[in-house]
Simulated scan of single mutants.
Amino acid sequence: MADSLNRPAVLLTLHDVAPSTWADYRPFVETVDALGNVPMTWLVVPDFHRRDALDAHPDFRRLLSIRLARGDELALHGYFHDDQEPDPTTPRDWFMRRLYTHEGEFYRLSHNAALARLRTGIELFQRYDWPLHGFVAPAWLMSEGTRQALRQLPLRYTSDPQHLYRLPDFTPVDAPGLVWSARSAWRRGLSKMVSDQREHRWRHAPVIRLGLHPVDMRHGYSRDYWLNTLLRLLASGRVPMTKVNWLAQQRGQRERAA
Rank of each mutant, 00 (worst) to 15 (best):
S110M: 02
A185N: 10
R198N: 08
F106G: 03
N112I: 06
P154S: 00
Y100R: 15
L178W: 09
W180N: 00
L153R: 05
Y107N: 07
Q162C: 12
G189F: 04
E103T: 00
A75K: 00
G104H: 03
R156M: 13
E144P: 08
G121Q: 09
L164Q: 11
V194C: 06
P161C: 01
F80S: 00
G121N: 04
T171S: 13
D169V: 10
R108S: 15
F125E: 05
D83A: 08
P138V: 02
S184R: 10
T146A: 12
L164A: 10
R166W: 14
G121F: 04
A182Q: 01
E123H: 04
M193F: 15
R188P: 04
R166N: 05
L164S: 10
I122R: 10
E199L: 14
R127A: 11
R97N: 05
A149S: 02
V136R: 01
H77F: 09
E85F: 12
L115C: 06
A116M: 08
S191F: 00
S143F: 04
L109Q: 12
Y100Q: 11
F106A: 04
R187K: 14
R188F: 02
A114N: 02
H111I: 05
R188Y: 09
E85N: 15
A139H: 04
F125V: 10
K192E: 14
K192N: 08
L109S: 09
L109K: 14
L118P: 09
E105C: 08
L74E: 02
D160R: 14
G189M: 06
F125T: 09
Y128N: 12
E73G: 03
R92M: 13
L178V: 13
T171R: 09
L115Y: 10
G78Y: 02
H102F: 12
P168N: 02
T158M: 14
F80W: 13
L178T: 06
A116E: 14
P86W: 10
L178A: 11
R166Q: 14
R92N: 13
E85W: 15
G104E: 09
P154R: 04
L190Y: 07
Q84Y: 12
R187M: 08
P154W: 01
G134E: 09
L164I: 04
E73S: 04
W94S: 14
P131Y: 01
R183Y: 11
D169I: 10
M193E: 15
R198G: 09
R183N: 12
A149T: 07
